[in-house]
Design a binder for these strands. Structure first.
Length: 883
RNA sequence: GGGCAUUUAGCUCAGUUGGUUAGAGCGCUACACUCACAUUGUAGAGGCCAGAGGUUCAAGUCCUCUAAUGCCCACCA
């Protein structure tokens, strides 16, 4: 095995094994009645997506779960796919054709859509390739796209069903309008961000009298569309003015002063301009008071013909000019700085305009009800729990969902109109040949497309070709776990639950695991514009995919955000390298004939020495914890356990101890078995490295025993009878002695390779036997020429001392003993012991403690106090003997 | 305005249902490269667990309040 290179080189293994797994179809899952299904649907990345750290974390977690359950013998399906991402993709392709000097309008709708498909064929699988790079074991033969023909069928089906149920309606409402994308957005797509603006105080002159009313606004350009001024009926300042008429400046429209409870007397002047076509509150006022609705903007946020002189100016330009004009007329009273929060397009970050337009909506309250129930009854559980409240809070205040978008790329709304009957709406899965009403053949389809999320909310069942009944859907639905980030709880998670309850009459998944957001070291979100991105592919290139996965997972405690610096990946790389080299050591020293025996059958527990029993016990203890942590989505704890077990127990102690006796058959068998089982447990976390080593180990097995791949092997069973906590403690007692000896050596600067002599005194018979039985180990790792056992507790001449539990240690040395220093060392130790003893004495003197604490705790405390006192006594004796 | 989260070693963070003298990684100090691994080993230093009250025999852990930071939600013209 000398040909195994020294540092682990992930580049030589990763692609090789990924190809091997794919070619062997290890990722594919099919309904198997005798097996338990385990299914995750991937949060479909945008087709335009490029893998970032958030994806890397999200998909590593899913892959760990899938590989774990697959090895546990479940039929594990990870359903992959991509999202057509309407606005995002349209934007990307528009930029793409702009290089040819083209606009989408130049091409026309059909040609443009063709270009998007072409773009998708060419570049749309980038993210898929990248997911493979990190090791994702998705069933790629099932790869879905939200615009697949069958999937589109499901979307239409859902629209029609909801319409027929009366849950979809069309109407004129104020919606969030992105002037750049020129489409309506849902409330979720227009997140509020704080902006530094101003509050402008405008004077509106009274018509019939002298004077004016002052209104405050943050968007003065909308005044052109004002059709009233409102005050609170309780407001004494304006009591006499209600019902009077004002002249709207610049436009000279006559507008009434109305009274409404909605007006906050304390804000601004207590008088508010009412612009029903440009503000949701004003819209409500407009409806209530039957006001005129005057739209003053084009869809691109330039002013329209209703803005008279300001026509065709951009909204912000118009604002400046209007303010100038008002100032000139003496109608601008003052300007105050004012911070406000306003919606921004989640795709292009443009300030969104509240805009009156005709859109399609879904009535959400009826859909929300069963979805709320499902979570309240615990059928769906959030991890961490706190997201339950966030979910319920949103669901209980749910607003209707604006689902129409004025873009080209997406699912065209399955609504048709007859040119003859004009406004008659025909909702149909397929285009009707003629108008069902008047029989005219001239039918045209609604121009709008559906919100992207109107297709993604069907993901857990539409990927199984719903509404077609089929075995896959029956077997894998409801899916097991959804793994996602908090940002899309409302967008996606909540809506999937509603869709599942509505169309499948069942929950879409049982668990929702919400992981944190990946941020940079300063806590900022990683983004291209901030230039603080750590590219996962660069990390893979530099450190390897396993290192990427390990490091990401090890710092992701449940649901907390991840603050990431590039250096973190060194830990993963170093760990991979450690495993690699330890395995190299095991394999180069392995005698396959000796190792290839069944541990349980061949050896009784009593046949093994304490060190072998210790490492086996530790392995199964760790396995037990890892299982528990994985079942509770505590990935970091699982992976950190594996790290410290392998590095600090298996390598630092076990391998070092057996090294001199490595050809002994018992050592051979145990080191081989522990490594092999460890690799299996490691596999979900570090799939490539574990496969690479495991395959090398397989090569040493007799042909008949060989298996094809670690990834389709079994998850190790816990051998409860091997776990022995008392034995673990005993073994660790020996390590403690060795550590103390090493400590003594260093304290007087003895060269690492110089042999020394140690005398010890053991305070119990059991300990004496233990130390005697393992004196070879102590001598070897402590670099001793001799370890002798004192008959009496007495410091030999020319020694320095230390205590390890109930063993007193004396290291012999030549030269002059620095008694003062030695005294000092002992004194310090004694002081800290005295402090601890005082605390214990106080506790044990407390009658409340003795009465109320459980007996085992009291006993433990007594025992511990006794031990401390013993140690103190021994130290004090050691100190005396120095004099 | 409402809600959630965070505050533990120089830095980044673990710490499961309260129970011995609070842990890890990185960084730091000293020593060590023929003998699996310097992407390493051995040993070590480093903590009033944000602050103030409270519950309890016992609090980093539970409760209340305060402060700082971050995030989410809301129709503050």
């Amino acid at each position: 095995m000398n040909e195994i290179p020294r540092p682990y080189n992930p580049k030589e293994t990763e692609d090789k094994w990924y190809k091997f797994w794919e070619e062997n179809n290890f990722f594919s899952a099919k309904p198997k009645p005798d097996k338990k299904p385990f299914c995750i649907v991937i949060p479909p990345p945008n087709v335009t997506g490029i893998l970032h750290m958030g994806h890397a974390l999200n998909n590593t977690i899913q892959d760990i779960l899938i590989r774990y359950h697959r090895m546990k013998g479940e039929e594990a399906l990870w359903m992959p796919g991509t999202d057509h991402a309407g606005i995002a993709t349209q934007n990307v392709v528009e930029k793409f054709i702009a290089r040819e000097g083209l606009k989408r309008q130049d091409l026309g709708r059909d040609k443009f859509i063709e270009r998007v498909w072409k773009w998708k064929e060419e570049y749309g699988s980038t993210i898929i390739r990248q997911l493979k790079k990190i090791g994702s074991s998705c069933d790629w033969q099932r790869l879905r796209f939200t615009m697949d023909e069958e999937y589109s069928g499901a979307v239409k089906e859902v629209f029609v069903r909801l319409y027929e149920k009366g849950l979809i309606y069309q109407g004129n409402y104020i919606i969030n309008w992105c002037p750049r994308c020129q489409t309506a957005l849902s409330d979720e797509e227009a997140p509020h961000r704080e902006i530094q603006g101003s509050l402008y105080y405008l004077r509106y002159p009274l018509k019939e009298a002298e004077g004016h009313v002052v209104v405050a606004t943050t968007r003065p350009e909308t005044m052109l569309g004002d059709t009233a001024v409102a005050v609170n009926p309780k407001d004494k300042r304006y009591k006499n003015l209600v019902g009077k008429t004002l002249i709207l400046p610049l436009i000279n429209r006559r507008i009434k002063i109305i009274a409404d409870e909605m007006v906050d007397m304390k804000f601004g002047t207590g008088a508010v301009k009412v612009t029903p076509a440009h503000d949701p509150n004003d819209y409500a006022l407009g409806k209530k008071h039957k006001l005129e609705f005057v739209n003053v903007m084009h869809p691109d946020a330039r002013m329209n013909e209703n803005a008279l002189d300001y026509r065709d100016m951009d909204r912000f330009e118009a604002r400046e000019v209007i303010l100038e004009d008002l100032k000139e007329k003496g109608l601008l009273e003052k300007i105050e700085p004012h911070t406000l929060s306003a919606g921004h397009c989640y795709r292009c970050h443009t300030l969104v305009e509240p805009y009156l337009s005709k859109q399609w909506f879904v009535k959400m309250k009826p859909l929300a009800k069963p979805a709320i129930e499902a979570v309240k009854k615990g059928k769906i559980k959030f991890y961490p729990k706190r997201w339950t409240k966030v979910y319920l809070g949103w669901m209980e205040n749910i607003q209707d969902w604006c689902i129409s978008r004025q873009i080209w790329w997406g699912h065209r709304i399955p609504v048709y109109y007859c040119r003859e009957c004009r406004d008659e709406i025909i909702v149909s899965r397929d285009k009707p040949e003629k108008c069902p009403r008047c029989g005219a053949p001239d039918i045209f389809q609604d121009e709008d497309v559906l919100d992207t999320w109107f297709s993604s909310w069907l993901w857990p069942f539409a990927t199984f070709y719903w509404p077609k009944e089929n075995q896959d859907l029956k077997y894998f639905y409801p899916t097991s776990t959804l793994v996602t980030a908090p940002e899309i709880i409302f967008f996606w998670v909540a809506r999937m639950i509603m869709a599942g309850m509505e169309f499948m009459e069942n929950i879409p998944f049982k668990d929702v695991y919400i992981h944190g957001t990946v941020r940079d070291v300063e806590g900022k979100k990683m983004s291209k514009s901030l230039g603080n991105i750590i590219d996962p592919l660069e990390i893979i290139n530099e450190y390897g995919a396993d290192a990427l996965r390990f490091s990401l997972i090890s710092i992701t405690s449940q649901g907390q955000d991840v603050y990431l610096a590039k250096e973190r990946f060194e830990q993963g790389r170093n760990f991979a390298n450690k495993i690699w080299n330890a395995s190299r050591f095991v394999l180069t020293n392995l005698d396959p004939k000796q190792a290839a025996v069944d541990l349980c059958v061949y050896f009784k527990k009593e046949d093994l020495d304490i060190i072998n029993r210790w490492i086996l016990s530790r392995f199964y203890s760790v396995l037990k914890e890892v299982n528990k942590n994985l079942d509770n989505y505590k990935f970091n704890e699982a992976v950190n356990l594996l790290y410290s077990f392998f590095w600090h127990e298996f390598c630092d102690w076990y391998l070092e101890i057996i090294k001199p006796d490595i050809k002994d058959q018992k050592n051979q068998v145990v080191m081989y078995k522990v490594l092999e089982k460890f690799l299996r447990v490691l596999h979900p976390f570090m799939p490539f490295l574990s496969e690479e080593i495991w395959q090398k180990m397989q090569a040493t097995e007799p042909q008949s025993h060989r298996a094809t791949s670690i990834m389709v092997n079994n998850w190790p069973h816990i051998q409860e009878q091997i776990i022995d906590k008392k034995l673990e403690k005993e073994a660790e007692g020996i390590f403690g002695i060795i550590t103390q000896i090493r400590n003594l050596r260093i304290s007087i600067a003895i060269k690492p390779d110089q042999l020394v002599k140690v005398s010890c005194f053991t305070h119990t018979k059991a300990k004496e036997r233990l130390v005697k039985e393992n004196s070879a180990i102590i001598k070897n790792l402590g670099k001793l020429e001799d370890l002798d056992f004192l008959a009496k507790s007495k410091r030999p001449d020319a020694t320095i001392s230390a205590i390890s539990d109930d063993v007193d240690l004396y290291l012999h040395f030549t030269g002059l003993l620095d008694t003062a220093l030695e005294q000092e060392k002992i004194k310090e130790k004694m002081l800290s012991l005295q402090k601890a003893i005082r605390a214990k004495s106080a506790q044990l003197a407390n009658s409340n403690f003795l009465e109320r604490a459980p007996k085992e705790i009291v006993d433990k405390e007594k025992e511990s106090k006794k031990q401390l006192e013993d140690e103190l006594k021994r130290l004090s004796k050691m100190a005396d003997e120095l004099r």
